Simulated scan of single mutants.
Amino acid sequence: MKTIRYAFWAIVGLCLVLIGLANRGMVTVRAMPEALGNLLGLSPDVDLPLFVVIFLAVGAGLMIGFLWEWVREHRIRSDARSKSREVETLRREVQQLRGAAAGATSDDDVLALLEKTG
């Protein structure tokens, strides 16, 4: 199983290297359109290799997807926590009832109830 995992990550790494080598050309990344930048007197732009832009875009997409999924599953996680607390409460109650039943010395249920209340 470890071999398959290592082989998979080696293939992923090789693909990333090939993408990087194929897309080494420099591109200009602008934060706003050129006309608006000229109007405001700001021109926030950066020259980066294309593969860096691709990897950053994929990483940003993954982060947005993970955050979206985490927020979407909030209700499921809160339901699971409440059910877990309920199960633990019921487990403790059953243990107490078993302990009380084991403490009863009489074989007769009616006498055991009378001893417990009296």
Rank of each mutant, 00 (worst) to 15 (best):
L21A: 07
L36C: 01
L114Q: 13
A100L: 14
A10Y: 04
G13I: 03
R85Y: 09
V110C: 04
R72I: 01
V71R: 12
G103N: 13
A7D: 13
W70S: 08
L67G: 03
A60N: 11
I11D: 09
W70V: 02
R85G: 05
V87H: 08
N38C: 02
A31L: 11
M32Y: 01
R72Y: 02
R30M: 02
P33D: 03
G13Y: 01
A112Q: 10
A60S: 12
T89E: 10
M32D: 01
N38Q: 11
G118Y: 09
L16K: 11
R92A: 12
L111C: 03
L62Q: 03
A35S: 09
C15Q: 11
L18P: 12
R30T: 04
L16Q: 13
K116T: 06
G61Y: 02
D108V: 00
L40Y: 02
H74S: 08
I76G: 03
L114W: 09
I64Q: 09
L97A: 10
K2M: 13
E34A: 04
A31W: 06
C15G: 14
G41H: 03
I54Q: 06
D79Y: 09
M63Q: 10
W9T: 15
F8I: 14
L16M: 15
A22C: 05
L111Y: 05
F8Q: 13
G99L: 02
L111F: 02
G103A: 15
R92C: 03
T89G: 06
V71T: 08
Q95A: 15
K2L: 15
R91F: 08
Y6I: 14
P44F: 05
G41N: 08
V29E: 01
M1I: 09
W70I: 05
C15V: 15
M63N: 05
L56Y: 05
F55M: 13
I19S: 13
P33F: 00
L39H: 03
D109Q: 09
N23H: 12
